Computed example of a mutant assay.
Amino acid sequence: MSKNAKTLAGIVIVIVIAVAAYFGFAQTGSKSASEKTIKDLKVYFVPSKQPDQIVTMTKPLKGLLIKQLKKEGYDVKNVDIKVGTSYEAAGEALASGTADIGFIPGGTYVMYQDGAQVLLTATRSDLNKNFSEANKWNDGKETKAITKQAATYRSLVIAGPSQKGQQLAKKINSGEKLTWEDVNSAKWGLSSTTSSAGYIYPSLWLNKHFNKTVSDLKNTVTVDSYGSGMARLASGQIDILPTYADARRDFADMWTTDYKQSQPIWKETNVIGVSQPIYNDTISVSKKSKTMTPEFKKALSKSFIDLAKTKEGKKVIAIYSHEGYVPAKSSDYDGERNAQKLLKETRK
């Protein structure tokens, strides 16, 4: 082969390699773009507030999350928001893969941890009252939020304005201890079995003080949300409602308007029991969802953390009294696991 021919052949080879490299890059880029296009992102919320209220307040999340994920390089076409009919329904949706993302309590996460992965933990404003003694909450004054952020909260056992509720409150506020007969003779409103504040930790409180659990109570009803529970407490249909520590703040206005009570909630209700600290709610994702790649989970975490720092984002997450998010790990909820383990043992 002549020198010119060799030179020509070399040029051709270089061109072929360059063309091949170009098309290979184009195909790779096309694949990457495809992987970063998400047709539908399904988000589930638990019904800890009135479902229609949750739907209304979280509606802007669709556009906000799409916009935030766009900054992370993901093109999300639609965000579908649903409120589960129960805490378990939200957990099961994550476990089955019919939901991609779930705003769920720690108790629900632990119950469905085989199919769900905790991504973030919510932070909230701490309260000016954070006592382990029940009667210290009962000064008749409003519980207020402070600037300090907290990663834990407490479950409070609240006695209502019914005759039995007031009887139990009077005993606590005079410094006396309640007996099992006292609490067992009252009518309780309980949340779903995976609710940390409405079921699990109140059960631990009963176990600690009376060597009993909620399954031993003779007079209970299930409330499908804290809103309906508060309505029943106000009307006297139930005497006791276990709930999260700042619930009375959330329902203070409704107490005298929707529930038509003559006195403020701070005067008509009293704390008769206080749980140990509980780790805050989670944003968890489905292990079954094909959308939840390691890269997308990283982008999703950053998006929610950044979203919570915006004025619009804060309005959305305020439905659960969330004020921000921090990265979470599974071991953060070992306390919840221990709590559920004890519950299982006491049920045997």
Rank of each mutant, 00 (worst) to 15 (best):
E268K: 01
W180H: 01
K314G: 11
I319M: 09
Q261H: 01
T123M: 14
R232A: 12
L343A: 05
L156Q: 00
Q149F: 09
V19P: 12
G229R: 00
T108G: 03
A33S: 15
P264T: 07
V110Y: 12
S330D: 14
E176A: 05
V43A: 02
K77D: 04
Y22S: 14
S185D: 12
M111R: 04
A90G: 10
L168I: 09
I104R: 03
V214N: 10
G106E: 04
K70F: 12
P202D: 01
R249C: 15
Q261T: 00
V46L: 10
S32D: 15
I38Q: 00
K212F: 13
L178I: 04
G324A: 13
L65R: 00
F23K: 06
I317P: 02
K148H: 05
F304R: 01
S34M: 02
S286F: 05
S275A: 05
K31G: 01
N280R: 12
L119W: 02
S301E: 07
H322V: 11
S275K: 11
K164L: 06
I104H: 00
L41A: 05
L168E: 06
D281N: 09
K177H: 15
D334L: 07
S321E: 14
L119F: 13
T310Q: 09
G229N: 01
V183D: 06
N207Q: 08
I11H: 10
P242K: 02
T58Q: 02
D332F: 15
R248S: 07
I200E: 03
S289L: 10
Y226I: 06
G175W: 09
W266L: 03
I240Q: 00
G102V: 08
K302T: 12
K67V: 02
E133F: 10
D114R: 06
G313D: 11
M111T: 07
K218G: 11
K212P: 06
S185H: 02
K42F: 10
A328G: 02
A116D: 13
K82Y: 12
Y325L: 12
S215T: 15
E88G: 08
R248M: 08
T257V: 00
K309P: 02
N135M: 10
K62A: 14
A151N: 11
A308L: 03
R154S: 00
L307Q: 07
G73V: 13
I172E: 02
A33Y: 12
S162V: 10
Y109E: 03
L168D: 05
I238H: 01
A150I: 07
Y44R: 11
G175R: 02
I104V: 14
S195W: 10
S321W: 13
S125T: 05
G160L: 06
K3N: 15
N135E: 15
N78V: 10
I240H: 01
R124F: 13
E323D: 15
S235V: 05
K344S: 09
V223D: 01
S192K: 01
A197C: 13
L64C: 08
G236H: 04
Y112C: 11
Y153A: 06
A245N: 12
N280Y: 11
Y109F: 13
T28M: 12
V157Q: 03
V46E: 14
P47K: 04
A339M: 10
T37F: 00
V221R: 08
